[in-house]
Design a protein around this nucleic acid. Structure first.
Lengths: 146, 146
DNA sequence: CAATTATATATAGCAAGCTATTAAAATGGA
DNA sequence: TCCATTTTAATAGCTTGCTATATATAATTG
């Protein structure tokens, strides 16, 4: 009887949700002084990797909905992190570029994120940490295909 | 150099956030027909366990902020899932009770959540599934004390 | 017992996620 | 070529999370 035994504490969905909220709080604390947030950080990572991507490319890469990305980019533009430039060949498309200031945030932001990752996995062996990533990757794959 | 090697795909924080969004989508799909949502579900679980809890007790049990709980309870009251009754001894306190309809949702809601948990852990051995819970619990503990 | 402090809840306002809809531009077929 | 379809992005409106602040009631203390 999975149903009658069900408990919050042993439900993967509940645990993951709780864990994600704790991650968000910890990262937020550390990147807020840089003018970044948990919504903008993944976009920054994608753009530090490759600037000039289109909104559609960012959506596919980060796995959020198109409307979420549009809103996030608007806030980022408002806050001076990115600029949107018209695509030269397709008037529907906007390409996204970092501002000079945003380019400079890479090192401290990544340092902050690494710090949180280390804190989160404190007390784990390298093997356990690798196992956590492996299992997480599998859950993502399982839920993505459904 | 953790910093220069940093990649989204191998950052625990990023992975966990992504995984949590996928869980939310999967559970939402299945409990929406019941009139439930991912914000209300944990509250329902707590109340199915024990009715008449105060807002403060629910806050402590579920680990969300007080303001978040207040808003969630307001929506639940609006949607006919709970009623708030004055505490008999302390006029500051409201106790929270399920409606008849809400009591009847327990079985189908838990079935839906179990289904998502099974889907998420598909392809894992019992041992791996237990390991996932263990590691997740440790991350929650690590981030909670900080 | 009055005044301060502590506790419980509510409200304001923002971020970041979602679905659904709209608008504009590009593409493709008759 | 022109009309219908597809693609890209923006907007509206909702939930769920947060911080900061306000308000009301209890509790404590001088």
């Amino acid at each position: 009887m999975t149903e009658t035994n069900f408990s919050r504490k042993h439900s993967e969905g509940y645990q993951v949700n709780h864990m994600a909220r704790l991650f968000i709080r910890a990262i937020q604390d550390r990147i807020k002084p840089l003018g970044l947030s948990t919504g903008t950080f993944p976009v920054m990572l994608a753009l530090w990797e490759k600037e000039g991507q289109t909104q559609r490319e960012l959506v596919q890469e980060l796995g959020v909905e198109q409307a979420t990305m549009a809103n996030t980019l608007s806030r980022m533009e408002r806050d001076g992190l990115v600029v949107r430039r018209a695509h030269e060949a397709d008037a529907r498309v906007q390409t996204v570029w970092l501002t000079e200031r945003a380019r400079g945030l890479r090192e401290p932001a990544i340092r902050a994120a690494s710090e949180v990752n280390d804190l989160a996995t404190r007390g784990m062996s390298d093997q356990q940490r690798a196992e956590f990533t492996t299992l997480t990757t599998q859950v993502i794959a399982n839920l993505s295909e459904a």
